[in-house]
Nucleic acid binder design. Sequence first.
DNA 1: GTCTTGACGTTTA
DNA 2: CTAAACGCCAAGA
Length: 116
Amino acid sequence: MISRLSDKSKDFFEQVYAVVKEIPPGRVTSYGAIANYLGSKQSSRMVGWAMNACHNQPEIPAHRVVNRNGLLTGKMHFVTPQTMEILLEKEGISVISDQIVDFNVHFWDPEKELKI
DNA sequence: GTCTTGACGTTTA
DNA sequence: CTAAACGCCAAGA
């Protein structure tokens, strides 16, 4: 095989997508949780950047990924700013003022629940 | 090649 | 309590 050193960075994105896809319906997680699960808790920005590139992947439930405050910061990046909020409520999650209600209850920690 | 921005999070003032 | 700065890494201009 030909060395694929250039694709090394892509691996990080794949890991983020893999975790996001494993998020069960009705649950949500934060960028920091994913970053922490990947071992780069301080690089939470990269998770968000990976989400920005989620268009490379077929289906990524990015609406289940929010910031630490449970605020829908990335809603504006969807097809429509309301898509994220609608999808969340559709799964049984209440969203008020772009903020998830009982975020701690719906929170899904990959390191704790996925534990892969 | 350098500078700015960015779907974050934590710490300090 | 709120507001602002820093840190982290990557991509775009």
